[in-house]
């Protein structure tokens, strides 16, 4: 790594970190209060969450506003740029580990807990005394456990909407890469078209996902309550959907920043960070498609 550099840019004092800490606290405090509220209790928790959530959005606007201003003023030298890149890469790594916890839970449930409940290995006595009628299987037959928590349900067929969603996300990865190449070559019109396409594809994915959820709840009786099948299905696809939502918003912000001419061919960390994030979301989806929908 090159050690030749100017003095590092140590940013000036900022109110945004403390604002961020306060609004994050308000959000989770309100959420905790709301979760424990008795039915019919006044909406104190909800009010606090709302204030906190609006605060978080405002904080992001404010913080990024000041960062973008500094970036445009040329305060960030290549070394600072490297710090940002490292920050984003390790952030994505932490996200990978977060999804890892849920994929780990899925693999454990399918390979161990369901077979054991069905009497495999040392689960033989549990099965004999508690769940004599249960035969271990995944999917619609056994996926909601020996007591059929949540009632009978059917699974989502992978070759309909999920396949379409896979194609949508894969295409969006291609379009964002084309936009990146256009950025390197300095074709702003082309960037706007392909980045805009990526945003639209992201939004289409989310629309399809929402449609799939409604179908699951209304027609398949596949809900969050459908035993571990429902738990893993909705938690994994749900967290992925949240990440797609976030990614789409970030892509849209980048689209406007391209429109305003914030990036040039050498200086576009913001663009690349969001592109990395988008590829990460894409890879998570491929794992979901394979392990949650197909297998």
């Amino acid at each position: 790594m090159s050690q030749q550099h100017d003095t590092y840019y140590v940013p000036s004092k900022s109110q945004w970190p403390i604002v961020a800490a306060v609004v994050m606290f308000l959000t989770v405090f309100g959420a905790a209060h709301w979760l424990n509220a008795e039915p019919g209790e006044s909406g104190f928790g909800k009010t606090v969450i709302t204030v906190g959530a609006i605060g978080i959005i405002g904080m992001f606007f404010g913080w990024f506003h000041s960062v973008i201003k500094e970036s445009l003023a040329g305060m960030y030298n290549p070394q600072v740029d490297t710090s940002f890149r490292m920050g984003m890469m390790w952030f994505i790594f932490s996200e990978v580990m977060f999804f890892g916890a849920f994929f780990g839970a899925l693999f454990y449930i399918r390979n161990f807990s369901i077979p054991w409940l069905g009497g495999a290995g040392h689960g033989v006595l549990t099965h004999r005394f508690l769940y004599d009628n249960y035969s271990a299987s995944w999917g619609a037959e056994g996926g909601n456990g020996p007591m059929h928590v949540g009632g009978a349900f059917s699974t989502v067929v992978p070759w309909g909407l999920p396949l379409l969603n896979t194609l949508i996300l894969l295409t969006s990865s291609v379009t964002v890469t084309i936009a990146h190449h256009a950025l390197r070559a300095g074709h702003r019109g082309k960037i706007l078209v392909f980045l805009g396409l990526t945003v639209l594809l992201g939004a289409t994915f989310l629309y399809c996902q929402a449609h799939e959820y409604m179908e699951a709840y209304k027609e398949l009786n596949l809900t969050l309550h459908s035993g571990v099948y429902g738990s893993t299905f909705f938690m994994l696809t749900g967290f992925h959907g949240l990440h797609v939502t976030l990614g789409t918003i970030m892509l849209a912000v980048i689209w406007f920043r391209v429109l305003k001419g914030h990036f040039n061919k050498d200086h576009h960390f913001g663009f690349e960070a969001v592109a990395w994030y988008w590829h990460f979301v894409d890879v998570v989806w491929l794992c979901l498609f394979l392990f949650v929908y197909i297998l």
Binding site: W116, L117, P146
Partner: peptide
């Protein structure tokens, strides 16, 4: 997962629904 098991009705750690506290 603890949070959703308690407040949102998931079954990660509930054997009735196919889960396992040992998970």
């Amino acid at each position: 997962m603890l949070l959703t098991d308690k407040y949102f009705g998931t079954s990660f750690f509930n054997p009735h629904g196919g889960g396992d506290p040992v998970l």
